[in-house]
Every structure is written in C-alpha cells, then in structure tokens.
C-alpha cells in the first residue's frame, strides 16, 4: 500500500454549528469528509492535495428524511443503503433507488452518502442523473445562513461546484411525482456491480390528456458534469405521446452531450449508446402511457 500523510489532521465537530464555524474561521483549510468512499481512495494513494479533514460522519443534523406533501428532504449523510431500502422512495422515486442500488456494492452503499456523492462532483456518479429527473435542490449552509440551489446548477465544471469554501451540503430535496408519470433509469457500466458508468441515463415524464407536460432527462458520464438534456426535453415536452419522433430526439441528444475518450470507454461509444438508450426509454415511455390510456 501507499502512503498516508502523517501530518494530516482530522477534526470531528460536536455539532453542525461547530463544523460551520470552523469552516468559516479557517476558510479553505478543512475538507469535509462524509463516508469516505470517494476520498479515501486518492488519499491512501497519496494523491490528495489537502491534509486536513472535517469529519462529518457523526453529525445527526445531517441525517434523516423528512416527508412533506410536495417533497422529500434527505439529509446529506443519507447513505445509499438507506435510500435503497426506504419504501416511500422505492414507490415514488424508483430512479433514485435504482441509482443507489447500482453504486458500488453493499459495503460501499453502507458508507457512501448522497451529499458526499454530490460534493465529490464526479460526472460518472450514479445518483446525479436520477436527481436531475426529480428536480432536486441542494441546501448549502454556512454560518451566515443557508441557500437552496437547483441541483442542475450545482456543478459548474469538471469536479467544480457552486459551493463556497465555508459551506456544507446539508439537505437534498426532491419533488414528489404527481399524476400519470413514467420513470426510467439505466446505467451502462463496466460490469454489473462495483462498476463505473460509461453512460447513465435517467428520465421522468408526466402526461396529461395524452400529452407530455413534463419531461426531464438526466445523463452521466457524457460531459464534464452530470447534464440535463435540454434540447431533447424541449423537443419532447408538449408532444402528443403517440407522435413522438424518436429518431429526431436521438439526433437532438448530440446537442446536449460532450463525451470524451478515457480508459473506460470511447466518446463514440458513449454517443452511440446514449442515443440508443434514449431510444429505448422513449419506446418504453410510449408503451407505458399507451398501456395507461
């Protein structure tokens, strides 16, 4: 095994307030650490540029799940296992539950957290496409107060976010689906478990009177950040379900994604497969609503 910085520090705050105070007092010094499943890998390999960790794991304020009529609010430290096993989430947010299922495997799911997943900012993470389909918002808190940021604006570039150094992710809110809706999630990974996505596609659609009134399409591993496919969404929204132009949507998707070649796959594969999976999802969507009608 490789080295661990002997000079590094871990601070475990007693409360959220304590954590925020430290972040404000020593700006940019402390790196928030949740379940460790992302950070510990580069850390142990000696590849992290920072040495001081703010251990959030014990902060009960960041756990739990609140249910209101319109939304579900998840604490930032909600683990994949908690998401995977929650019956209300299973019923209403199948995309999110599936993305938790396919993240790593059990031992990772017991430690990895939703907040950590977002803060880590990987474009290949599995939960972001699902969150994008549910209109997620992220609560960022500092000692000065808190703000809600639409998740689709959260990532600003490869591994970059809107978070200020003194802020923490405290909650993630998703809107409860209403009406006649359809959910789709497919991760095309390097294998069935313990896999990193080569392409990840999630979608949510709502239909009223045979017309798509809401359509959100989130993708992972096809751009420097998790993306919403706006061009496709605009094309699909407002359409009568039975008149959807699937081929045109596939073409339009190319406007929304900018995949690259890397050690896991190729840009060409990602483009081709993203389009194919979009085709699959639109076909399944049409079938679904036809059945419901």
């Amino acid at each position: 095994m490789k080295g661990q910085a002997p000079g590094c520090r871990v601070h475990t705050p007693a409360s959220l307030a304590g954590a925020l105070e430290l972040l404000a007092a020593e700006k940019g010094v402390w790196r928030p650490l949740a379940g460790g499943t992302d950070l510990m890998v580069p850390f142990a390999a000696g590849k992290l540029p920072f040495m001081d960790f703010l251990n959030l794991w014990g902060l009960e304020e960041l756990r739990g799940l609140e249910i209101s009529e319109d939304a579900i609010t998840l604490g930032a430290l909600s683990t994949y296992s908690e998401i995977r096993n929650h019956s209300l989430l299973q019923r209403e947010f199948p995309n999110l539950v599936q993305s938790a299922w396919v993240t790593g495997a059990i031992a990772i799911q017991n430690r990895g957290t939703l907040g950590g997943n977002l803060a880590n900012g990987s474009p290949a993470a599995d939960t972001p496409p699902s969150l994008l389909t549910y209109g997620a918002e992220v609560q960022l808190q500092s000692i000065a107060g808190s703000r809600w940021v639409p998740y689709e604006n959260f990532h600003t570039g490869y591994k970059q976010t809107v978070m200020l150094p003194e802020e923490l992710i405290t909650r993630i809110r998703i809107r409860r689906p209403k009406g006649n809706n359809f959910h789709f999630f497919r991760k095309v990974g390097t294998r069935k478990a313990q896999a990193i996505a080569k392409v990840c596609v999630a979608a949510y659609a709502r239909v009223e009177e045979g017309r798509v009134v809401e359509f959100r399409l989130g993708l992972g591993s096809v751009a420097p950040v998790p993306v919403r496919a706006r061009t496709v969404e605009l094309m699909v929204e407002g359409c009568v379900v039975d008149t959807l132009l699937i081929a045109a949507a596939r073409t339009a998707l190319m406007e929304d994604i900018r995949p690259i070649d890397d050690i896991r796959s190729t840009a060409k594969y990602r483009r081709t497969v993203a389009a194919n999976v979009l085709g699959q999802l639109l076909e399944e969507m049409v079938e679904h609503f036809d059945r419901m009608a």
């Binding site: 495997a105 390097t190 294998r191 069935k192 478990a193 313990q194 896999a195 990193i196 050690i263 896991r264």
Partner: peptide, 23 residues
C-alpha cells in the same frame, strides 16, 4: 489492458474489469 505509451493505464481493480458474482 489499456496501454498508454507502454504502460498499463487502467491499473486499478475499478478499471480493469474482472467479473463479480453478479456478472
């Protein structure tokens, strides 16, 4: 094995893909 200038570029279990029990 993905090669980059004579060196294995995917020298991690995450990126060199052997099957899990689920595969």
């Amino acid at each position: 094995v993905v090669w980059n200038n004579g060196r294995m570029a995917n020298g991690q279990m995450t990126n060199y893909i052997m099957a899990t029990s689920a595969d």
